[in-house]
Design a protein around this nucleic acid. Structure first.
Lengths: 243, 243
DNA sequence: CTACCGCTGCGGTCTAGACCAGTCAAGACA
DNA sequence: TGTCTTGACTGGTCTAGACCGCAGCGGTAG
């Protein structure tokens, strides 16, 4: 048994959540424990993971409920695929390149690696409703090689990694405007020297380890970033886990 | 006992982490369990919480170590002046226009007014260390007329309003890339048709009333937006999971 | 001296119970 | 009819063990 039971159960339940309607109740912990033939504590570990991912909401005395509304942008971390679906568009991708390259100092810094070590580079043209939306240039640590080897890289990278137990929990984001290089403009269907919205994300997994660094150039006429700001953006050290 | 043991232990250990040097090792789980007179699972629950907060790093076979506190500031609302100072630059402004105009439908919607009512329009060229940084086109409800009459509009608008008791508490932000119109490019010192980073903010005061709507076009080569994303950016009201 | 091997201590996982507090509906009582 | 009690749920907390794989150390064999 290479993967821990609670990880397997987490994945199994995550898949079920995807298919269940929002708001529906999951089986009780005892029932899940019986169904998976494990102890209740193990089921709870899986449910805790789903709850901290925001996919599920646990209500004492009532049950555990599917919570899909992962709604809008704002301070919420979303993958391209989630983002597009939230905007009512159908995401798809075309793989342009996948290769092993040496990490540049910048990439190495973002991924917490030494410069020059091998990393995986992934270039994808991403579509929304079959229209080009952005060109993505992504880098991942070489330790994900096996995961990516078995995966369909025209699917959501975040879902591929999540299935392998690597869940993105936070990200550092940089947004700027750049003139689209002519190759990018051509791929995106833009005029020469049209502006592009460049977003550089460094994603961290649940262990606070950098797991994915991407630079995406979006069509300026098809994409904008929404966010909400507030004066008191502070996380409290208080005991209450919610709110 | 009103607070669960694992919460109390979490708080106790968090305090200890603050005082211990970064990188130092915490006592082993067994020792902590003995010290707090609880089971090891309870200690683990506390340590899991600290680990997911990033205050502690757990290394199998070695121990649990204090991590450097991660700053991870959320999306903070800042005025242009605060923003520039935070980047180590000296903010200044040149007032280009102040006038009373009729609200367009878009402006009226953002400010919660009826289309056509008079609003105050303010156009300012904003500098950082005396170099052009952005061109701001701002709209405010006419009720602020008297406040603005007495103010030096080359200072921070947010500070002027705060002095009059109108404090900005939250904002909705839109970020996109646009080709700079030639007049804007000229004022900003950009080449014709260079990209600009356009940020549209609608600021709300402490009463959740819209108070200020601005569209700023930033030089793409001098400005970028940084932000932190996380998976759990909960929404406030008591939205129950049932339909 | 080096290479290997086993020991010990560490966190990671897992179990099979237990009791608590909250929710809610059904039944008992006024 | 209306209110109260009861009990059968739920998830929340907690225990006292167990075995695993990994890291580091020290001793031993080459």
């Amino acid at each position: 048994m290479s993967t821990p039971k609670h990880v397997a159960i987490t994945n199994e339940l995550r898949e079920q959540c995807r298919q269940l309607p929002v708001g529906s109740r999951l089986p009780a912990e005892k029932e899940l424990a019986a169904h998976f033939a494990v102890s209740r504590m193990t089921v709870r570990q899986a449910l805790d993971a789903l709850a901290s991912d925001g996919r599920v909401e646990r209500v004492p005395g009532l049950g555990t409920f599917v919570r899909r509304p992962t709604v809008a942008m704002g301070p919420n971390l979303t993958s391209f695929s989630e983002d597009m679906r939230a905007r009512g568009l159908r995401p798809s991708s075309r793989l342009i390149a996948i290769e092993e390259v040496s990490a540049t100092p910048e990439i190495a810094l973002d991924l917490g690696l030494d410069a020059g070590v091998p990393v995986i580079r992934l270039e994808r043209l991403r579509f929304a409703d079959d229209e080009p939306m952005c060109l993505e240039d992504a880098y991942l640590p070489a330790r994900f090689q096996r995961i990516l080897d078995d995966a369909d890289l025209e699917q959501s990278l975040h879902e591929i990694l999540a299935t392998a137990g690597v869940v993105m929990a936070s990200a550092r984001r940089l947004v700027r405007a750049v003139p689209a290089p002519s190759r990018d403009a051509q791929l995106l269907g833009l005029a020469e020297h049209a502006p592009a919205l460049e977003i550089v994300d460094v994603f961290y997994d649940t262990n606070r380890r950098p797991a994915h660094r991407s630079r995406s150039r979006y069509r300026h006429d098809r994409y904008e970033v929404r966010s909400d700001l507030s004066r008191n953006a502070d996380r409290s050290p208080g005991g209450e886990p919610d709110e």
